[in-house]
Design a protein around this nucleic acid. Sequence first.
DNA 1: CTGAAAGCGCTTACAG
DNA 2: CTGAAAGCGCTTACAG
Lengths: 339, 339
Amino acid sequence: MTRKAAPTLEDVARAACVSTATISRALNSPDKVASDTRQRIETVIEALGYTPNFGGRVLASNRTNTVGAVIPTMANAMFASGLQVFQQELSTASYNLLVASSGYDAGNELQQIKSLVTQGADGLLLIGSSRPPETTRFLELRKIPYVIAWCYQAQDKRCFAGFDNIKAASRITLEVLQKGHKNIAMIAGRSAQNDRARNRIIGVTECISKFNDAQLLSVNETEYTLDAGGSAFEDIMRQPDKPSAIICGNDVLAAGAIVRANQLGIKVPEQVSVTGFDDIALATVVSPALTTVRVPQLEMGKVAAKALLELISTGMAKSVELPIEIIHRDSLTDAPEAY
Amino acid sequence: MTRKAAPTLEDVARAACVSTATISRALNSPDKVASDTRQRIETVIEALGYTPNFGGRVLASNRTNTVGAVIPTMANAMFASGLQVFQQELSTASYNLLVASSGYDAGNELQQIKSLVTQGADGLLLIGSSRPPETTRFLELRKIPYVIAWCYQAQDKRCFAGFDNIKAASRITLEVLQKGHKNIAMIAGRSAQNDRARNRIIGVTECISKFNDAQLLSVNETEYTLDAGGSAFEDIMRQPDKPSAIICGNDVLAAGAIVRANQLGIKVPEQVSVTGFDDIALATVVSPALTTVRVPQLEMGKVAAKALLELISTGMAKSVELPIEIIHRDSLTDAPEAY
DNA sequence: CTGAAAGCGCTTACAG
DNA sequence: CTGAAAGCGCTTACAG
């Protein structure tokens, strides 16, 4: 099986009767080459089926035109669709996307980051702002351009493309309180290695604490699965002090809670209101449909790509804070008077 | 901003008092190096914070340790979770994953394939078996190792990691028929550039044609969204000849149909049964929960990764056919007697 | 606008 | 087990 060697710049140069330098220019900065030469070169390239060798190009230019993304998980719809837009945006700039997942584990994240950087990623997309010093040190040391999505911190010099999770969580909490709910519970994501989950808890807590007659009965941290949401719901509804509303850390948890409620014969929202977070497809499919906070997933992907590209080429890019929105559907209603 | 140049093999060699060749060996085939030399080298590498330069390595070895995946869309949960497993499996073999999406468009797919190959992908994961000759030619010409997921064709010499969509669609159809349904409709994906969608239609059609007293009233091709599923459902139920069961090309379509049915006050499954395909999270969240065919998403990701790695290193790998399974939930019930 | 040539940082036969 | 050296295929000042 003798695999005919792919044509090289050398081959093209010979066939087109120019130097390799000119061909390289014709490819990378066409305007520096006379148009007739350029035409001749293009013909030859076409005829030979030449494509630049990746390794040669990378070694000489020290750039890969590749960007890496490390996300918590691809299995959750909330990251996947943003990633899609991110990739499309990169694609228009002739950049490719390397993807890895951390499984919400900081050690794993560092490992994946190192792997992507070793594979030559020119820049990185990361989710969330807080990570162990070891990771931060690595990023700094290697001067890796990176943008952080899914959160926003005004005072921070790093580049964000996201929204303020504390504010967003406060917003949905306010909706709940305005419906007259006094006894509230929260089903949250695991906050230990997840600043978004943590900040959503903070947002809920802070908002409730401003209302004298309202109280946060409990915060149940759990993994982001339907089952876990269901179990947490069941636990909460077994307590003597039942809430009239449950605020969930994301839509998966909320959908899990509602599905379980339906199975247990507990009426949502008549007996308990439930709210979500993220606004993924699930939110419209559960019954009752989720009142939730819509997170600008697609917009984040797009903005993050632009920022990262700019960061790579110019060395700096501005953070952008995207707006969230409360989506009113059927899972949140007025607190029962008698309560 | 003088960015201190990263240490090279050269630097390590000098510091460890050995040749660059030895270091390269210590890195790539440690057993070829005396253990004390290796130790010394490791210390120096650690001290200098050396990591191999990607471009140099790629140019010299002609391998990137990167594979690419071109999937129809990341936004749909069915591909995303398989991709996650695929990446994890690659990761254990020190391979990285480049991802791109085609949006179910063949032209787009070719463009993305070219882009990934240009970026040095050692191999490719592709979804589905049928593509334009132009694409096939490119793949052949460049001798790109690739594996095809989400389908399986016994007679084919290409490498598959998937299941037989025709058989799978027949299986679920048989379930429907065995419940006594005679008048059936199908809501399918767009089959033009999508062999899975096409084969599922074939499977349904073939199976029904074997039953003399049953008929396929209509096949409604539409895009894979909740709304499209809902609209198709509405159209179907507006016809004078209503089906007693609707077989859907995937869970998104089925969930969309059921949500719409609920809104219209049409009872599922009492008035119409509805079945899905894929078994994604949505299937358990809609109410009634979907009777559907479970596709081995995660297993496919894993098997595909193994096959691709083997294909890259040895030049060949066997196709594997994975089993599907019918998941019985609540959206399919007996046909009304009176019908 | 074009060419000659150095150099990017590795890997890998080939010798020893 | 180790080293000297060629070579991978580009890009990019530097001259002209």
